[in-house]
């Protein structure tokens, strides 16, 4: 077991990619997973399960198959973690690649094509741009996991449910000033978490 992965006491937003409030990077978690550390694997799952599900929904277009793909992806991560090389870069791109490969294997095994190969994934984007957009959405979904629940709720209501700040205040029964504070705080945390990945 890797005692070094115990959460730190720091509460500051992280200045580098792949870190959450515990200060443990994705790469460190992958290395620990390769050594059989189930707690590290569980932390990776907590960080990436929603991001992988979002990617799977975009690629496979079917909720049931997407959920199967999440399990298949994490089975692959568990099996293949030893192939991750920290010196080659942070963990997020490696995890993204494993997820895409697992999904590709899944649709190949069923003999049909993924939704993403068709133009409807984005009518304006070519394959490279589609891949880039998928990567960015993956990172955004993963980065949301670094937010405290109350900040994440504000962001999701604002961006994905289209609520105004006043409506969010009503929905969450909190003062408008608190909504503003949480919004700013959330964007700052996300900017910090995404800093290296998006350079």
């Amino acid at each position: 077991m890797h005692e070094s992965l115990a959460p730190s006491t720091s509460n500051s937003p992280n200045a580098s990619a792949g870190l959450d409030a515990t200060g443990v990077s994705d790469g460190e978690l992958l290395v620990a997973t390769a050594a059989g550390d189930r707690k590290a694997f569980g932390k990776l799952y907590d960080r990436y399960a929603r991001a992988v599900l979002g990617l799977a929904l975009a690629r496979l277009g079917d909720r049931g198959r997407a959920e199967d793909a999440v399990q298949e992806t994490f089975a692959s991560i568990w099996r293949a973690a030893a192939s991750y090389r920290p010196e080659r870069g942070p963990g997020a791109p490696w995890l993204f690649t494993v997820a895409r490969n697992a999904m590709t294997n899944q649709w190949r095994s069923r003999g049909d094509l993924p939704v993403e190969t068709a133009d409807e994934y984005s009518l304006e984007l070519g394959p490279d741009e589609q891949a880039e957009q998928a990567w960015r959405s993956f990172l955004i979904h993963r980065s949301l996991e670094v937010l405290p629940a109350e900040q994440r709720a504000v962001i999701e209501l604002a961006y994905w449910q289209g609520l105004s700040q006043s409506e969010i205040a009503d929905r969450l029964r909190i003062p408008l000033g608190t909504v503003k504070t949480r919004s700013r705080g959330a964007l700052r945390r996300l900017a910090s978490a995404l800093k290296e990945d998006l350079q």
Partner: peptide, 24 residues
């Protein structure tokens, strides 16, 4: 970050079956 959020699809909620990692 604001522009990324605007372009991102909503992050899906995990169903109960995915609440925990697969036990392997």
């Amino acid at each position: 970050v604001h522009e990324l959020l605007l372009s991102a699809t909503p992050a899906p909620e995990l169903p109960r079956r995915l609440a925990r990692p697969p036990r392997i």
